[in-house]
């Protein structure tokens, strides 16, 4: 249903037609803002972004810079299934898979690049991940850079666990958990 707003297009009356009182009214509005802000700059809503940051609202916390989670033995949880690359609407993820010789998980990402210059921070990669390996909860908001290359995150940039990571074992991957157990991990 289209909402309709009736506009009252009545003709201007005499006072309005000579503009001057209306101009004065307009000036009163703008001048009020001007002087209020001039003498009380703290009242303005502007946030001086990089120096001053608001706390992110709940959902936005999970739309910050990506990270790749680690297992207890510091191997990436990621098994290079390419689900995030497939789901990514901005084509910003590039993965090259490789094979572990011993680890029962068999597959791991040899290359895992995220191009933040392309990323739209939609979080589809996190949704798609079947291994709970990628997250966007670092609370870092990627900003501008002088050089495109610096917006490219490699696997090394991405791999990190947050302090007090809820679980480094007990991931979706049964084989990984068993492998860690056999290695004597927690």
């Amino acid at each position: 249903m289209i909402s309709v707003k009736k506009v009252d297009n009545r003709p201007l009356n005499w006072l309005e037609r000579i503009y001057l009182p209306e101009i004065a009214r307009g000036l009163a509005v703008t001048l009020r803002h001007f002087f209020v802000n001039l003498f009380n700059p703290k009242g303005m809503p502007t946030v001086q972004y990089p120096e001053q940051q608001l706390e992110l609202p709940h959902a936005a916390k999970t739309r910050t810079r990506h990270r790749l989670k680690l297992r207890a033995d510091n191997s990436p949880k990621c098994v290079a299934c390419f689900m995030c690359q497939t789901a990514c609407p901005a084509y910003c993820i590039r993965i090259e898979a490789a094979e572990y010789p011993d680890n029962a998980v068999e597959k791991y990402p040899a290359v895992f690049d995220i191009d933040l210059a392309r990323c739209v921070m939609c979080g589809m990669c996190v949704e798609a991940c079947p291994e709970d390996a990628i997250a966007m909860d670092t609370l870092e908001i990627p900003g501008g850079e002088q050089d495109r290359a610096r917006l490219k995150l490699t696997k090394e940039d991405l791999l990190r666990n947050l302090p007090g990571e809820p679980s480094v074992v007990g991931a979706a991957n049964r084989l990984a958990n068993e492998y860690l157990k056999s290695k004597g991990g927690a």
Partner: peptide
């Protein structure tokens, strides 16, 4: 600056 102040900007 004037326009900014009138529009509640810095």
């Amino acid at each position: 600056k004037v326009s900014a102040l009138m529009q509640d900007r810095i």
